[in-house]
Simulated assay, not measured.
Amino acid sequence: MTGTLISLISIFIGIIGANLFGFFKKKYSFGFTGNTLIGVFGSILFIKLFGKLGFDPWSIMQNQSFNLLLFIVNCIASFLGGVLGLFFAKMIYNKLNNN
């Protein structure tokens, strides 16, 4: 597994997180397309934040070995990034449309 593949898996997990959260909490949903876009950007932002702590894809593949614990933390951070991205996007949307 390469760092690029781990990055793509992380983004996909963020998409799943945002769409699942939107599915179960209808008031936070922007539809499938909106949830998908927010999941991508939320996942990337959260992984960039946690990447500074050593959970980035290239740390997972350090010295051509696979660190499973770092990968699991990366997946959890991606999922949470998608969920929190959708939550904050809906908060911003509501603030901007509040007359």
Rank of each mutant, 00 (worst) to 15 (best):
K26T: 12
F87V: 06
G81Q: 09
S7Q: 06
K27G: 07
A89C: 09
G54W: 08
L70T: 09
Y93T: 04
V83N: 02
C75L: 11
I76F: 11
I6D: 02
N67C: 14
K95H: 11
S43D: 05
F32P: 04
F66A: 05
G17H: 08
W58N: 11
I38Q: 00
L37E: 02
T2G: 15
S29C: 04
A18R: 01
I47N: 07
F24C: 04
L53Q: 10
F21Y: 13
I11C: 01
N19A: 07
I44D: 01
F50I: 10
F24K: 08
G81D: 07
N35C: 12
F71C: 12
S10H: 03
K52C: 06
I15M: 14
L8K: 03
F66G: 13
K52F: 14
I16G: 14
F41Q: 06
F41V: 11
L86A: 07
G17C: 06
K95E: 13
S65Q: 13
L86G: 07
G54F: 13
P57C: 05
N74F: 12
M91V: 14
T36D: 11
G42C: 09
G39W: 05
L45M: 03
L86Q: 04
S7C: 01
G22N: 00
G22F: 06
L70N: 10
L68A: 15
I6L: 09
Y93L: 07
Y28N: 00
G81N: 08
K26V: 11
P57T: 04
M91I: 13
